[in-house]
Simulated assay, not measured.
Amino acid sequence: MEPFLKTERRGAIVVATLNRPEQRNAISEPTHSEEIRDFCATVTRDPSIRAIVLTGEGKAFCAGGNVKHMRDKEGMFAGSPFEIRNSYRTGIQLIPAALYELEVPVVAAINGHAIGAGLDLACMCDIRIASDNALFAESFVKLGIVPGDGGAWLLPRVVGMARASQMTLTGEMLNSAKALEFGLVSEVTTPEKLMGRAMEIAESIAANPGHATRMAKRLLREGQDMKLAPLLEMSAAYQALAHHTHDHHEAVEAFLNKRPAEFKDH
């Protein structure tokens, strides 16, 4: 069977595609979560990767969990309450843990439905752009369950508590225009232009030294929960490291000499 997460290297960018279009790219097996976790670990070890584009194969970005498995008490929904709790902790919750720790910037190209865990997956990315036919819903309550993958932590940090509460407690669907209004996505484009625009953003990120974008992303993530004083201290430490990299010196020389920089990822 083909991998759930299909990857393609394009220079300093990796395009990662959820690859179960017949299931609307639902995350329903432990191996799906493990593939995403392992992908994040592989990317972390490769300093030449400077950006990721995450999208879905077919008409959906990610439809969340498999509702038929919920009905039939199969897969991650099988067993006692203790067993289901453990399935979440050792399964789908691997994804937010891995993506939150990943320092390489991730651009989500939301090509269709992003529902439940699929919406939360989009919220784990740094930048989200959407096709104008995309639909979004934090729909767990519609099925009588709650966000089990960190959505209650992720969504308020993207759209604010009031809008996150509205989305979570109603479970209602948003179209791409409303998602843009809510700040859930930063851009909306046509289906035909979506991947091209996502690649443009990724290329703009990848044009910068990888050490700088990785550490800048870490500061943005940590800054959501830290007080100013410890964040300033962390920023000073990261800045000291950055000043001693080859790519910083190359960037400065290129700027002063008005020539393109040639980065070596160290």
Score class of each variant (00 low, 15 high):
L143Y: 06
I36S: 00
L54K: 04
R37N: 05
C40D: 05
G116K: 04
N66I: 11
L94W: 05
F182N: 08
L228I: 14
A108S: 06
G116I: 11
E222V: 15
I129V: 15
E203N: 12
R197A: 14
A242Y: 00
L18H: 03
K227R: 07
E83A: 13
A98W: 03
F263A: 02
S139W: 11
L121N: 07
R24L: 11
M167W: 02
A137S: 05
V104G: 04
S131L: 01
L154F: 06
V53K: 01
T90S: 04
T31Y: 08
S235A: 12
V14L: 09
T168M: 09
D46M: 11
S28F: 13
R85S: 10
I95N: 04
I92D: 06
A240K: 06
K227Q: 11
G210D: 02
E138F: 03
L194R: 04
L155R: 08
G183F: 07
R197F: 13
E187A: 14
R197T: 15
I145N: 00
V104W: 01
N86K: 01
T90D: 10
D149M: 09
E74A: 14
A237Y: 00
L99V: 15
N19H: 14
G116A: 12
A240L: 12
A16S: 10
R37I: 13
S28P: 07
D225Q: 12
V53N: 01
L220Q: 13
L241F: 06
L121Y: 00
R157E: 11
I95D: 00
K258F: 14
A12V: 10
G150D: 04
I49G: 04
S186C: 09
L121V: 13
I145P: 00
L219W: 07
P96S: 13
G79D: 06
S131A: 10
N257E: 13
A51P: 01
H69I: 12
E203W: 13
R10M: 12
N111W: 01
F39Y: 09
T55G: 02
G210E: 03
G118S: 07
A63I: 12
P3F: 14
M173T: 13
F4S: 08
M76K: 04
V106L: 03
E35C: 09
G112Y: 01
T90E: 10
G150P: 00
K59E: 05
H246W: 08
E181M: 13
M167K: 02
I84E: 04
A51K: 05
N86S: 10
L231C: 09
E57Y: 09
F61Y: 11
N257G: 07
A198P: 02
M173H: 02
R45L: 15
H244M: 05
I110T: 04
I129T: 08
L102M: 05
P81Q: 05
K178C: 09
A254R: 09
R71T: 15
L18M: 13
H32E: 14
L232H: 07
V185G: 08
L119E: 01
I84V: 15
Q166W: 08
G171I: 07
D120F: 10
S186R: 06
